[in-house]
Simulated scan of single mutants.
Amino acid sequence: MEKKTERIAILIDGDNAQAKLLKAILEEVAKYGKVTIRRIYGDWTQHNMNSWKDLLNELSFTPIQKFSYTSGKNSTDGALIIDAMDILHNGVVDGFCIVSSDSDYTGLAKRIREEGVFVMGIGVKTTPTAFVQSCEIFTFTDNIVQEAVIEKQIEASSAKKINKRVKAVSKAVPEVSKFTKVKLDLIDRAYFMATPEDTGILVAVLGTNLRKIDPSFDTRAHGFQTLTKLLESLDQYEIYKPDGSGLSQPVVRRKQRGK
């Protein structure tokens, strides 16, 4: 379990995000802290913003008007960046979430991190790498959608039907076996960052290190809801709780050869 940031501002580029995912996005951000500032930016006189309107009061978001002075040009980024800097310097939050797939927010994410403040991003798979790497955590909307679909099926199905439907959804997700070498190399790097002597580390620490190396790393992209479940599926690692250690969190270590 990652340490939670106490207060988070979620700033959404309404011209560059999907309204239908707003509730799921809010739930995703809430994993990291309490969302105290909630704003959506866009030209609310335009028809493309209508999909957001019904959700504003339901989820307590504040609409920020930004007129499109030039046809075909997204003018919301400037307003969002200015507001973010004001919030940052006022010190009223401990972290930010920028919801957009626009590379224009790369500089903003870097500036927030320079202040030692938590910053995460949420966007589509095609989000430029520069923006993804500028965030401490970057979550692709594909992974949020997958989780939301599974949860809805669980709520609406009997126990027998759940397994069939979850398996059907999982087929659309890349299997771990297809990325074994690449992902194992990544996990190994994150593991040895914390334990050069190969003595085992908390799963939560491994998760933090993975995000440091790759902010977009997400177990859901490989068919697992948690890092512990993913590690349990790998032959190279084992999960355990040391006897008499008083630790309540699971520990991961590499398996000894021949074991």
Rank of each mutant, 00 (worst) to 15 (best):
87 I>K: 04
253 R>I: 02
135 C>A: 02
166 V>S: 11
237 Y>K: 04
215 P>M: 08
159 A>Y: 13
244 G>K: 03
215 P>Y: 01
90 N>H: 13
162 I>K: 07
104 D>Y: 06
242 P>H: 11
121 G>E: 01
104 D>P: 06
241 K>V: 10
118 F>R: 01
112 I>F: 04
25 I>F: 13
23 K>C: 12
98 I>A: 01
113 R>Q: 12
117 V>E: 13
50 N>G: 07
100 S>E: 04
69 Y>V: 13
223 G>S: 11
258 G>F: 08
14 G>V: 03
163 N>K: 15
193 M>L: 12
198 D>C: 14
256 Q>L: 12
103 S>C: 10
77 D>W: 06
207 G>Q: 03
143 N>Q: 11
247 L>S: 13
153 Q>Y: 09
154 I>V: 13
235 D>N: 12
232 E>V: 07
72 G>W: 08
17 A>W: 02
5 T>F: 05
13 D>T: 11
105 Y>R: 08
242 P>G: 07
77 D>Q: 08
256 Q>G: 11
82 I>V: 15
88 L>Q: 08
174 P>D: 13
27 E>N: 11
108 L>W: 00
7 R>T: 07
54 D>S: 14
27 E>R: 08
247 L>K: 10
69 Y>L: 12
129 T>F: 07
238 E>M: 08
2 E>Y: 13
62 T>C: 08
241 K>P: 00
55 L>G: 03
204 A>P: 01
30 A>V: 04
157 S>R: 10
129 T>M: 15
17 A>C: 06
145 V>T: 09
215 P>A: 03
186 L>D: 03
138 F>R: 00
190 A>Y: 00
35 V>W: 05
173 V>Q: 04
41 Y>P: 01
45 T>A: 13
106 T>S: 14
94 D>M: 03
62 T>S: 09
151 E>G: 06
233 S>C: 10
176 V>D: 06
54 D>T: 11
70 T>E: 15
147 E>H: 09
38 R>G: 09
219 T>L: 01
64 I>H: 00
115 E>V: 00
221 A>Y: 05
149 V>C: 07
17 A>P: 06
164 K>A: 12
225 Q>K: 10
250 P>G: 07
54 D>P: 14
241 K>S: 12
200 G>C: 08
77 D>Y: 08
159 A>I: 06
65 Q>P: 03
173 V>N: 01
146 Q>D: 00
153 Q>K: 13
254 R>N: 05
54 D>H: 12
8 I>R: 00
122 I>C: 00
111 R>Q: 04
120 M>F: 06
23 K>A: 13
144 I>N: 05
187 I>D: 00
10 I>Y: 03
191 Y>G: 05
258 G>R: 09
154 I>K: 15
219 T>N: 14
234 L>F: 14
226 T>P: 03
129 T>K: 15
92 V>N: 11
55 L>A: 05
52 W>V: 02
112 I>E: 00
121 G>L: 09
63 P>K: 04
24 A>L: 11
